[in-house]
Amino acid sequence: MAKSMKPFSSSLLVCPKCSSAVTSASEGMACRACSWSPEIIDGIVDLREDKTFDTLLDVNAYDEAHNIQAQTAALANVYERILREKGCASVANVFEIGAGSGNLTHGLLNSPFFCEIHTSDISLNFMKLLKKRVGAHSPDKLSCYLLNANNNPFRTASFDLVLGHSILHHLEQFETTLEESFRVTKPGGFCVFGEPVLDVHVFSGLIASIILHMEQARGTLDRPRRMALTALANRPQIKRDHLESDRTDLREIEDKFIFPINYMRELSSSIGFKSFDCTSFDSQLSLGEHTLRLIKHVFNQIKTNADFLSDYAFLFEKLTVNYGEPMKMNDITPFSYFVFSK
């Protein structure tokens, strides 16, 4: 077990007890000053203060429910493309937050663009699944940690890149996560997070509300259809309210937020990032088509037929022409990438 640890795995760590350097040796890892040492579980360094806290996600069913396997090959390429457009020829070291089952991690390991990968999650079960998935692939390139992203044990200015894919909207205090990400990023480095954005979801709520009222007027609205349309209509306001509420109430909610782009831009500036961009990729859909796809997705999740939406094709077409084109929103996707430059 100890032999799997590499010198660079601990060179970035500071002791949570006394803030001294943590070093690795053949027998494991330890603080030079106070002899504190973390538990190492199957090659995963456990740096959690609260070992009872875990993910709300269904670890065993997560990959299938989110079509993870189909995304693996392309996902790391998206992050590479973002960074190349920012002028990066390669990234020396990466800190990945909320790695889950290793969907993005696997791609990062396969890419020569990313050199050292320091991947993390709060869940031991997810990290064990990640280790099983990546196996012995690139053992000299990967270090695995269990930690709380809001209180991570890395030195200030340790990483060229901090990233997370679909993680911030699960975290009740995601602003602290971004502050910590800023702290451990080197000057000139980047933090990149793929997240759901509110701009497109607002329109799905608007169209769902219109359809709900029209269906009620027709007298053809059954209970599953009513519940789905009501949830869609209310979702943007509920998610926005989450941002402004007492977030202790959100601890048992999996998907807590959809992020307004302007809110994230203002947050970026307040934390101290030099610049902020929201980037969308490979969109060949109009605003109306994106909105239709979002609504259909909810109906598919509850296994309810959405064929009736064809009766409302004119609404999605009007949305594209009246809002998408003049507001230049046809290139914004429901899931986009926040790029913070330090």
Rank of each mutant, 00 (worst) to 15 (best):
S158L: 03
I302S: 09
S123K: 02
N93P: 02
L229R: 05
V184I: 15
T185V: 15
S9Q: 11
H213L: 15
L168K: 01
I302E: 02
H290C: 14
F154W: 10
N125R: 13
K6R: 12
F113Q: 00
S123I: 06
T177P: 06
D277L: 11
F159E: 01
L146T: 00
I302H: 00
S275P: 00
E85D: 14
A157Y: 07
D46K: 01
V298S: 10
L243R: 08
Y79I: 05
C18I: 05
Y145S: 04
K131W: 00
N305R: 09
L319M: 07
A25H: 15
K239Q: 11
S19E: 12
F314A: 13
K141L: 03
I238A: 10
I271K: 03
L146N: 01
V339K: 02
I258Y: 11
L146K: 00
P196Y: 07
V14K: 14
N103F: 01
Q71G: 06
P16G: 06
G100R: 03
I117W: 02
L129D: 10
I253Y: 00
D42T: 09
F174I: 05
E289N: 03
I122P: 04
S111D: 09
T320S: 14
V200H: 03
F190M: 08
G288V: 02
E252Q: 13
E266W: 02
I211R: 03
G98L: 08
E172Q: 12
R32M: 13
I68S: 14
V22T: 03
R218K: 14
N262S: 14
D282E: 14
K342E: 06
A25Q: 13
C31L: 05
E195G: 07
S11W: 05
S20N: 11
R81M: 10
D249V: 13
T248P: 00
A65S: 12
V197I: 15
T220F: 10
W36E: 05
D140F: 01
C88I: 02
A33I: 00
I82F: 04
A21K: 12
T105D: 01
S341Y: 09
F314W: 11
L146A: 01
Y145N: 01
A99R: 06
E49N: 08
A21L: 11
S101R: 09
A61C: 04
K186N: 06
L129S: 13
E80S: 07
H118C: 11
L146C: 07
L47M: 15
D50V: 07
F203S: 06
F53Q: 15
N103W: 02
S286Q: 03
V162W: 00
A65Q: 12
A233H: 03
L171Y: 04
S158P: 04
D58M: 05
C144Y: 01
Y323W: 13
I40V: 15
L171I: 15
V22M: 13
V162S: 07
V59Y: 05
G98N: 08
H66D: 09
R48D: 02
L83V: 06
L161S: 01
